[in-house]
């Protein structure tokens, strides 16, 4: 069996992205939206590293991925802060209750 590494990595990138996107569209829980965003970020991280590896320039993409991880941590922390704020007001994490802004 011929194992073609770039096809396998590309397939897993697409599968991760589809999983994250499906969960983002279907979920009703605020924190699960953040988990879906995390899964999609993993997919993009894998894409960046593998494209650097296959074109021979892994050190450059490694620098990009380090920056990406740091920025993503700050976004998740601020997002959790906002979700906790919503939950303090609404008393649950259901996305159907976020209907105050209409029109």
């Amino acid at each position: 069996m011929i194992i073609d590494l770039n096809f396998i990595i590309f397939a897993s990138i697409i599968l991760l992205m589809v999983t994250g996107l499906y969960c983002l569209l279907v979920t009703k829980n605020l924190l699960r939206i953040l988990i879906a965003l995390e899964v999609m970020t993993k997919s993009v991280t894998l894409f960046l590293i593998s494209s650097g590896y296959f074109s021979g320039n892994a050190v450059l993409t490694q620098a990009l991925v380090i920056t990406l991880i740091i920025i993503e941590v700050v976004v998740i922390v601020v997002a959790c802060g906002i979700v906790i704020g919503v939950c303090v007001h609404n008393k649950n994490l259901d996305i159907k209750n976020m209907r105050k802004l209409k029109g």
């Binding site: 992205m17 983002l24 605020l30 939206i33 965003l37 999609m40 970020t41 993009v44 894409f47 960046l48 990406l68 976004v75 601020v78 997002a79 906002i82 979700v83 704020g85 919503v86 007001h89 609404n90 976020m98 105050k100 802004l101």
Partner: peptide
């Protein structure tokens, strides 16, 4: 306030989605 958190959350989700597209 609750309205501010809702507006910020909607902006956050769509902005993170836009970020994923830009990175891809």
């Amino acid at each position: 306030g609750i309205e501010a958190f809702e507006g910020a959350f909607k902006y956050l989700v769509l902005s993170a989605l836009a970020t994923i597209f830009i990175l891809s």
